[in-house]
Amino acid sequence: MRKSSVRQFAEAYYDVATGASEKERVAIAKEFLKLLVRQRLLRKMPRIFAELERITAERGGPEIVDIRSAVHMDAKADEQLTENLEKSLGRKVKLHHVHDAKLLAGAKIQVGDTLIDNSLASRLAALKSHLLA
């Protein structure tokens, strides 16, 4: 039997879980995990979840936006960022914060496969390669 792809798992899960009640969803999630364990596919789980997020966004759900920033952002900044992103993307967004002190300052914003990089760390890296070239 051909192995199912990550995308197929995510799609199947999405199809089963949409429209189910809260209680059913827990049961579905449990069954899904059991299936992954049985097929020894737990290591694919992060990718399946990432794919699931993408499918949710594709089918009208909010777009998950990863924000990796050097400092913790306050609520006001969040609100403003959400508003700007929704305007430019033309759809609802949901922010997902990650704190990363290695960026020094600024932030990296990732929507789907697109990355907007405005961190000090990457600017310094660019300067380094510019000077070395």
């Binding site: 990732q110 697109t114 990355l115 990089d117 990457s122």
Partner: peptide, 11 residues
């Protein structure tokens, strides 16, 4: 040298 925010497709 100009450092502008970069827009890139990543994987």
């Amino acid at each position: 040298f100009t450092a502008e925010p970069k827009n890139a497709t990543v994987g």
